[in-house]
Design a protein around this nucleic acid. Structure first.
Length: 292
DNA sequence: TGCCAGGCTTCAC
DNA sequence: GTGAAGCATGGC
């Protein structure tokens, strides 16, 4: 295995940091649809691309991991990125005892974390994700990175960074369309222009409450409530947001009389939303379909 | 081959 | 203000 890994990614020259993590599931994070540049390269080898950074890590047994970076890099960036200092068990204990669906979802999502991703990357990612399937989203983002992202080098070799606002703003509409963006290409174009020129400042979102931040994001064409809330949840770690997409809508109709009781879960709605999304999409409705 | 995808905009009414 | 149609493209 080690030889295979080394041949594929030259990890032999990378520093190592070994750590025990008991409540961490790369698969749950990947499949939960919050990130599209987190890859399971092999059953126990993962690649994470975040902004201009890249990290490989290896699961050596159920709770032990080898991260191919220095301890300092891990502590300074990746620990926070994976949200490892938060106690998710504490979140889970707040779930109502009589809400079996949500309890099942939380159990299914054990080890899922809300990654602390970059606002700019989330803005473009969820703008181009509308009415696309996860595979197609991933492909479009990869094409965009190859088309105009910087080529960077790390211990494992070269890779593409997520493009900066300036890089995307420099593309023509035809170039954006070549990434499979379809009707979303003008949306990505105008968002990049707005951030590039300074007409839209992502840093100002930090100073706004959730409602104002959603309204501000919605001034960009192609952004509605759902995308705005995804940007807030995944890009600003606003855990009180509750993005409603087709899966959450389905869950709400089937289990919550049309509306999830967000008032009961102030401060953790976003975590529960991810539980519901991942469980509903990747487990519950698949099993239900099988049994019908 | 046809349906559907982590929605939004536009346009009737 | 509400509801429905239209939207480009790729995956299955």
């Amino acid at each position: 295995m080690a030889q295979l890994i080394n041949r594929s990614h030259n990890l032999a020259s990378c520093p190592l940091y070994k750590i025990e993590l008991r409540d961490f599931s790369p698969e749950a994070i990947i499949e939960s649809g919050q990130t599209f540049r987190f890859n399971q390269v092999q059953p126990d080898l993962f690649e994470v691309l975040a902004g201009s950074r890249r990290l490989f890590f290896h699961r050596t047994d159920e709770n032990h991991y080898t991260f191919y970076c220095t301890r300092r890099e891990f502590d300074d960036f990746w620990r926070g990125y994976f949200d490892l200092d938060q106690d998710y068990e504490l979140y889970n204990r707040q779930i109502a005892e009589d809400d079996q669906f949500l309890l099942d979802a939380a159990e299914y999502c054990k080890g899922l974390k809300i990654l602390r991703q970059e606002p700019w990357e989330m803005l473009i990612t969820f703008l181009l994700a509308q009415r696309k399937n996860l595979k197609s989203i991933k492909n479009s983002i990869q094409k965009l990175c190859v088309l105009c992202g910087s080529v960077l080098q790390d211990c494992a070799g070269s890779y593409y960074a997520f493009p900066t606002p300036d890089q995307i703003a420099s593309l023509s509409l035809e170039q954006l369309e070549s990434c499979g963006l379809g009707y979303r290409a003008p949306y990505v174009e105008s968002a990049a222009q707005a951030v590039h020129t300074g007409a839209f400042k992502l840093s100002e979102i930090k100073n706004l409450d959730n409602r104002s931040a959603v309204e501000r994001l919605k001034t960009l064409p192609g952004i509605g409530d759902k995308i705005a809330e995804c940007v807030l949840l995944f890009g600003y770690h606003r855990l009180d947001t509750f993005p409603v997409d087709i899966w959450i809508e389905r869950v709400q109709e089937d289990f919550y009389d049309g509306a999830f009781p967000t008032d009961n879960y102030t401060g953790i709605n976003g975590v529960l939303q991810q539980y519901l999304f991942h469980y509903a999409r990747n487990h519950y409705y698949k099993e239900k379909e099988k049994n019908e």
